[in-house]
Design a protein around this nucleic acid. Sequence first.
DNA 1: CTGGATCCGCCACGATACTG
DNA 2: CAGTATCGTGGCGGATCCAG
Lengths: 105, 105
Amino acid sequence: MEKGYCPIDTFINFVKGKRKATIILHLKQGTKRYKELIQLLPDISDRMLSKNLKELEEAGIINRKAYAVIPPKVEYSLTDLGDEISPILKSMFKGGRLFEKQIEE
Amino acid sequence: MEKGYCPIDTFINFVKGKRKATIILHLKQGTKRYKELIQLLPDISDRMLSKNLKELEEAGIINRKAYAVIPPKVEYSLTDLGDEISPILKSMFKGGRLFEKQIEE
DNA sequence: CTGGATCCGCCACGATACTG
DNA sequence: CAGTATCGTGGCGGATCCAG
């Protein structure tokens, strides 16, 4: 992941893609299928969801489990690493609300 | 800041710009001048630093204090809001190290 | 149902040069 | 010293079509 940057930048690079963080929080609620995620994220395209899921998988944040059945069935869930970082996302969630609040003023 | 997204995305949008987060952490250490920041962030361009500083100022995260002297002197410091979110950045810092660790393996 | 492949527009970012 | 102006570039993200 690039050069000897600040770890914060590393973190952001893993999480910034479109709605990656939001995906993680949804998976924190439990295992989800592809279609369920699409419905939970109404403003994301197929292409972006699959791309983000693949990147999250490569980053070791989520597990991908495909069943060899017809029609296809794929389940996504958090890895241990995903569990470790989810509290950080939670605090970012709270932090984001601080900003939203001040925008209204 | 776009639509009714998840607050996490709001947070990321405020902080993602190249090395904005790193700037905040440096200012957490105390008031800094423009030139000091440039030296602390060796891989950032003038244009990016001034742009990020301006955005952070508009976001209410930092204060900009210019002195009408020659040569010019400008000091940057964190606002209360900047103080509030800095612990979140700290935890992102720790989270980033988790990723870096696993990259090596 | 779960994606991959392709094309394309837009914006963040980089490098350089210039100003009060 | 502390920026702004300008130009060029790469990659993110959207839309659409196709495949197993």
